[in-house]
């Protein structure tokens, strides 16, 4: 299945992803205004399964996880960037939004169709057939994403532990 690429530059900060002035309105309002300062039509035009591609230091700034939550709500399949700000990166994985690092990202065309293979860590451009390799995710993060984020992951772990406490295991 192919997705459309939405291109952004360097240093996209959390105040742009989740603008402080809409914080009161909750996640739905934040999502509607996500990135509007840089690209006013973004929330309106992005469709489920699309991919955001950015430059370096994506998600810098505050620890507010609404920045990642808004992107997840918009249905993005993944965010690919030359580099991520650390807290944003962790928040995204914890919320089940795949984030992939591609230090040597070539210049891409906005709106191009591409197919993402999370397992293989590749992005294939539909028109040219060019394959872009992404940094593989560490195993622990793959497991988190596979469970859908930290909360479902912990639920699984706690239910396993409760199971053990009830004496089924050695």
């Amino acid at each position: 299945m192919s997705a459309r690429l939405f291109l952004f530059g360097d240093d996209i900060d959390t105040d742009q992803l989740a603008p402080g002035q809409y914080m009161k309105g909750g996640i739905d309002e934040l999502t509607a205004h996500c990135l509007e300062g840089v690209r006013p039509d973004f929330a309106g035009s992005v469709r489920s399964g699309d991919i955001l591609v950015a430059g370096k230091n994506f998600g810098m700034g505050s620890s507010r996880e609404q920045a990642a939550e808004a992107l997840k709500k918009l249905g993005l399949a993944a965010v690919i960037a030359r580099s991520f700000a650390g807290i944003f990166y962790r928040n995204a994985i914890n919320l089940g939004l795949p984030v992939l690092i591609a230090p040597n990202l070539p210049d891409l065309e906005d709106g191009a169709s591409a197919a993402l293979d999370l397992d293989a860590g590749t992005l294939t451009l539909v028109d040219s057939g060019q394959v872009i390799s992404l940094e593989p995710l560490p195993e622990n993060l793959k497991a988190l994403l596979a469970d859908g984020g930290l909360v479902p992951h912990l639920k699984k772990r706690f239910s396993r532990e409760r199971h053990k406490e009830h004496g089924q295991c050695a």
């Binding site: 700034g61 928040n91 914890n94 930290l150 909360v151």
Partner: peptide, 23 residues
Amino acid sequence: SHSPTGGAFGAYMFGVGATEMAG
């Protein structure tokens, strides 16, 4: 996000979002 402040005291301190904090 400014949690690295604790590093001034030789503690390894860093910031996380709310879901990770709940974890």
